[in-house]
């Protein structure tokens, strides 16, 4: 192996050693080469110096960083828990409303039919009125969810900007 190839091999091995590790035989060859070659030894030292710096240098953490993050996370966590409880209550109310709606549908259908005939309304009118009655709880629940989400999003954004 000529000198140029040996230097290239040494530098490849140095990098591979740092990234993936090298075999014992390759390490022996590298150690022997570094002992004999000043240029490669200097390269090795420069690389080690860079890594030593990266590991050893300390940075200044702003005072109160963890405390403010903890407060922020706790506040947001409390808001999320409250929101979840509200969503669960709403879901339970929707489910209850749906069950009651299904159970009472035949009765209400007959009531609308009777009203339609009593008021002499066309069939389409009282049937549409029945459909509208059927969708009122779902529409109301959707409206409540949208309003609640909008309000909660506004609250969260405000609390973030207050903190930072």
């Amino acid at each position: 192996m000529n000198d140029g190839n040996a230097h290239e091999r040494a530098q490849r091995l140095m990098d591979r050693d740092r990234v993936e590790g090298i075999a014992l035989e390759e390490r022996r060859w590298l150690d022997a080469h570094l002992a004999a070659c000043e240029t490669c030894a200097a390269w090795a030292e420069a690389g080690e110096a860079a890594l030593r710096m990266l590991r050893s240098v300390s940075v200044a953490v702003p005072p109160g960083l963890a405390t403010s993050a903890t407060l922020l996370v706790r506040e947001r966590g409390a808001q999320l828990r409250k929101q979840r409880a509200q969503n669960l209550a709403l879901a339970a109310a929707c489910a209850l409303s749906w069950v009651a709606g299904v159970a009472s549908a035949p009765l209400v259908w007959r009531l609308f039919a009777w009203l339609g005939s009593a008021l002499d309304l066309p069939g389409m009118v009282w049937q549409l009125a029945f459909v509208f009655w059927w969708f009122v709880p779902a529409a109301a629940a959707t409206l409540v969810i949208i309003v609640a989400r909008t309000r909660s999003r506004t609250d969260l954004n405000m609390s973030d900007s207050d903190f930072v």
């Binding site: 940075v59 953490v61 702003p62 960083l65 963890a66 993050a69 903890t70 996370v73 706790r74 966590g77 999320l80 828990r81």
Partner: peptide
Amino acid sequence: RREPDLLEALILRYEYRLYRYLL
């Protein structure tokens, strides 16, 4: 479960490393 105490412990534990990485 979004346990607040766990999150606080994690924030303290990774304060330096996470801040350094971000920095």
